[in-house]
């Protein structure tokens, strides 16, 4: 996200950088865990453990975002981030709803595993568009 590289405060830059890293971990972990599930025949307990592991960075990202928003003093930027996050959640919801109809035939895209990717893309796109329109 170019958002954190612009002339923003150290707090904002640092927070965004940490959130970016955590989102990167979310994406990397989702790819890695998907590969593990596809290559190994896992029992229910192992699948449960993998499921728990996969949500850990998602929870961490949510907590980081909450902490960032609590500390963000610029109301405009705070609104911008919240609005972009809502767009991100909306994009994930739309993708899930759409691809859920492919489930009975075996979905082409394991949508649950690419949720973080969709979220990151939608949030980044919305932030960039809003900042570009407000140059």
């Amino acid at each position: 996200m170019k958002f954190c590289r612009r002339q923003f405060s150290d707090y904002r830059r640092r927070s965004m950088h940490t959130i970016e890293i955590m989102m990167g971990i979310c994406i990397a972990l989702s790819i890695l865990l998907q590969a593990v599930i596809e290559r190994h025949s896992l029992n229910l307990v192992s699948r449960f453990e993998i499921a728990l592991l996969s949500i850990a960075p998602v929870i961490a990202t949510i907590l980081l975002l909450a902490r960032y928003l609590r500390g963000e003093k610029d109301a405009y930027v705070r609104n911008l981030v919240v609005e972009s996050m809502l767009w991100g959640l909306g994009a994930v919801l739309i993708a899930h709803t759409f691809f859920s109809y492919f489930q009975p035939d075996g979905s082409l895209i394991p949508i649950g595993n690419i949720s973080p990717d969709i979220f990151v893309l939608a949030v980044s796109a919305k932030l960039e568009v809003k900042l570009w329109r407000n140059q």
């Binding site: 405060s9 003093k73 109301a75 930027v77 900042l131 407000n134």
Partner: peptide, 18 residues
Amino acid sequence: EVSRQSVNAIETGKFDPS
């Protein structure tokens, strides 16, 4: 102590300040 984007948004009426 706000971003330049905030000032621009207020000036253009896109955002009402707190």
